[in-house]
Amino acid sequence: MENLIEISNLTFSRGGRIIYDDISLQIQKGKTTAIMGPSGIGKTTMLRLMGGQLIPDKGDIKFKGESIPNMRRNRLFEVRRQMSMLFQSGALFTDMSVFDNIAFPLREHTKLSESIIHTIVLLKLQAVGLRGAADLMPAELSGGMARRAALARAIALDPELIMYDEPFAGQDPISMGVLVKLIKALNDALQLTSVVVTHDVNEVLTIADYIYILAEKRVIGSGTPEQIKNSDSPLVQQFLQGKADGPVPFHYPANSTAQAFLGSAS
């Protein structure tokens, strides 16, 4: 199977803290790959690295065989037209209507006439079920609708790769179901390659073709949903079952309780 993105021996640190230490992963073309892990381990950072917004300290990220960190700025901007990203907040432009938000990438990057843009925008909105909301402003949308509108914008230019940053975080069960269905449907209908960063275990197990679990600066488990479920790694199992204590400790590292409470006495 062909890999759209290949990350090899990547090391990345920020503010003196190492976030990734020598990790490698592959995103297969046409598949949905999920990257999971506890909060605060830099899953979003991984997407930003893939999008070329951050530069790794060591290692390489290849998009269709071309190294992203070594690209010149102009080339990077060209490559970014083939990828798009759904941000956690949706990141709709608050000073434009939903319609103009989705028309934005088309107006920026194509020379299509307004009537064609109109058609494309309505098609994309229809795909996410928001054609009726075209004239609303982003502030008038609910959280779930904003994310769907952002999804319509993300697919406006028919990208090859779409990266979802925590698409399910903070959604009610219905919106969550809608998003799961949309991601799956888009992937099948448009032959997209999807990367989903999330910590919602159940949703991911239903849509992902391949899963990477990141923790402690490295990949602790990878495989198809079936392989992950049957993994014998205690760390993976703790994550899947949501146990409070285990290899990932409940307590943030601290000195001993005796020292903390009896500090002056002892």
Binding site: R48, G51, Q53, F77, E78, R80, R81, M83, S84, M85, F87, Q88, S89, A91, L92, F93, T94, F104, P105, E108, H109
Partner: peptide, 14 residues
């Protein structure tokens, strides 16, 4: 803060 600048960048708009 609302990632609008990042999303512009990801849409290949400076």
């Amino acid at each position: 803060a609302t990632e609008q600048l990042s999303s512009l960048e990801m849409m290949a708009v400076d």
